[in-house]
Write a protein that binds this DNA or RNA. Structure first.
Lengths: 167, 167
DNA sequence: CTGATTGCAAATGCTTTGCACGCCA
DNA sequence: TGGCGTGCAAAGCATTTGCAATCAG
C-alpha cells in the first residue's frame, strides 16, 4: 500500500505546478511506493510490464523527473553506471548506502554522527551543505570468510536485481 | 611535470599485465598528470587536441580504464551525469569532494574523522569497507550573500569547466 | 475548449566494439 | 614474427525530444 503521505505530497506538488492528475502518473506512483525497493528506470519498466501495466518509457522518465522534483524520490549512484532511484528518503531523509563489492546488495543505514560531521567539515571550509551523498563499497562477513557472497548465489536463484557493477 | 611515482607505477603495472609501452599511452599519461585537474573523457580529448595531440577517443577510453585499474586515476561522480576522472588519489588516497551548487566548482578536502567514522559504521554493520565516496553539494559564502557564485561569472569569462549540473 | 499528457519513433550523448592495419618486444 | 595497440566507423545503451493524437479541467 502506498503511504497516504506520498499521495498527498504528490497531489499538492502537481497542483502547485498547475499540472494534471492522470491515470498514468497515478499508476506509476502507486507502483513505485508499494514497495521500498530501489530501481532503475528499466527495472521499473520491466516490473510494471510484468504486472500488466505498460507505460511508455518516455512517460516513465518524465514521471521520475517529477517525483524527484517533488522530493519523493532521490537519484542515487550505486557505482554501476546506471541511475538508481530510491523511494525511502521520505522516511529517512539522510540515510546512506553500503554496497557489497561482491553481490552488489545495498544496505541502507543512518548515522547522526556522520551527518553532523559532514556538516561541520563543510562549514569549516566556508560552505553551507545542501545535500550529501555517501556510498561505501564493502565486503560482508560471509564474503570475507568464504570468498564469495551468499547473497550472490541466492539472488541469482531468485532472479533478483544484482550486478551493481559495471559491465 | 609528471611525478616520477606515476611513471613508475604505470610502467610496472603495464609490465605486470604483459602489456606494451607505447607512444600513445605515454603521451596520454603525461598529459593527464602534468596537472591535477579533474576531467571528463571529452574534456581531456579537447585539451589534448588543442595541445596538438590527437589521440582517438577509443584509445583515450581504453587508456583511462587502464589507469583506473592501475589505481592512478579514480572515477568520481560530481552529480552532473558524466564520469569525471580524478588524478589526485595518489597524493591523497582518501579525499572527498565538495561541489558548489551554483557554479559547480569542486573543492577537495581530507578529514581523518570522516574516514574513521565511515569505517566504524561499516564495521558495526558487519562490513569491511573497501572504498568510500562522499560528495557534498553546498553553497559557498558568496553564493549565500549575493545570490550567485562569483566563480560562475569568472569561469564563464575564462571559458573554464563549469556546469556540474545536469542539463 | 485549451493546454497538458502520452506514445512512438527519431535523435542524443557517452562509451564500447569489430576489424584491418601498424608497431612493440 | 606474433600479438598487442590504434583508429575509424559502427554498434550499444540510457535518456531525451519532436510531434500528432488524446485527455483532464
Amino acid at each position: 500500500m502506498m503511504p497516504p503521505a506520498v499521495r498527498e505530497k504528490f497531489d499538492s506538488f502537481i497542483r502547485s505546478k498547475g499540472l494534471r492528475q492522470t491515470g498514468q502518473r497515478d499508476s506509476i506512483v502507486e507502483f513505485i511506493f508499494e514497495s521500498d525497493d530501489h530501481f532503475t528506470p528499466d527495472e521499473l519498466f520491466d516490473r510494471m510490464s510484468r504486472a500488466g501495466m505498460k507505460p511508455s518509457r518516455a512517460t516513465l522518465y518524465r514521471t521520475l523527473a517529477l517525483l524527484c522534483e517533488a522530493n519523493l524520490l532521490h537519484e542515487i549512484d550505486l557505482g554501476d553506471g546506471k541511475t538508481t532511484y530510491d523511494p525511502n528518503f521520505l522516511d529517512r531523509p539522510s540515510h546512506n548506502h553500503l554496497v557489497c563489492v561482491d553481490c552488489g546488495k545495498v544496505t541502507e543505514f543512518e548515522d547522526d554522527h556522520i551527518e553532523v560531521l559532514h556538516k561541520c567539515v563543510s562549514l569549516r571550509l566556508g560552505f553551507r551543505p545542501v545535500k550529501q551523498s555517501l556510498r561505501i563499497e564493502a565486503a560482508c562477513e560471509q564474503l570475507r570468510a568464504k570468498g564469495h557472497c551468499p547473497n550472490l548465489i541466492q539472488a541469482r536463484i531468485e532472479g533478483k536485481r544484482l550486478p551493481n557493477r559495471k559491465k
